[in-house]
């Protein structure tokens, strides 16, 4: 008996079918497990182990290698501030401190309500639009300290169901690495990447 919903089980089967060997599906299945529980629980890792036919310890060894598999309770909005070289040169540290200060959440931690997690991250490939921040891996480029504070307050008050990169860029962003072209209505629904095979893409209401 799987602990996963019917829908997640269907997705798991589909994902496994896309690889010549089922162990290759460990990484996408770990994201499925995160989407089920909000973060990666021990039970989630045990379930992944059953699906791909390896031991829970092997699954844990994979999960612990990668930074995006959050094995502790993570907020509904994961705010990741880049402090790598190009962002640092243009004030990335100040952005991180503004987010920490405004939210009251130090990097690496989550607020009591389970709404916001704050982390500092290494390069997220937005160096031409530094300093950059991601919310649930949806990007905002050219952020200022003031806008970063606004972002925290917006997340707390608006509590968007779907975190949309174009909307956030419009509200809180500035210089971009390149022209993003057409805007999209899709976005993230939790602290994991929004990608359709994982079933983690949300569409903004009213669009």
């Amino acid at each position: 008996m799987s602990i996963w919903s019917e829908e997640t089980q269907v997705r798991a089967k589909e994902i496994i079918s896309r690889y010549p060997e089922k162990r290759s599906a460990v990484m996408p299945l770990l994201y499925l497990a995160m989407a089920e529980d909000g973060y990666l629980t021990d039970e989630g890792m045990e379930e992944v182990a059953l699906w791909v036919g390896i031991t829970p310890a092997q699954v844990r060894s994979v999960a612990s290698f990668y930074t995006m598999y959050k094995r502790e309770k993570t907020g509904r909005y994961l705010v990741s501030c880049c402090t790598s070289i190009s962002c640092m040169l243009l004030g990335g540290d100040d952005i991180l401190h503004a987010v920490e200060d405004e939210s009251g959440v130090p990097h690496g931690e989550t607020d009591d309500e389970g709404l916001l997690s704050v982390e500092h991250v290494e390069c997220i490939g937005a160096c031409g639009g530094a300093p950059a921040v991601q919310v649930n891996y949806e990007l905002i480029e050219g952020v200022t300290s003031e806008k970063a504070r606004d972002l925290v307050n917006w997340l707390r008050s608006a509590r968007p169901e779907v975190v949309n990169t174009d909307e956030m860029q419009e509200l809180f962003g500035g210089v971009r690495s390149f022209d993003w072209a057409v805007s999209e209505v899709d976005g993230a629904i939790g602290p994991y990447p929004a990608f359709q095979p994982l079933g983690t893409v949300g569409t903004e209401v009213g669009e």
Partner: peptide, 9 residues
Amino acid sequence: TIHLGGGAY
């Protein structure tokens, strides 16, 4: 097949 990484340089 599109495979998503996990945040490891």
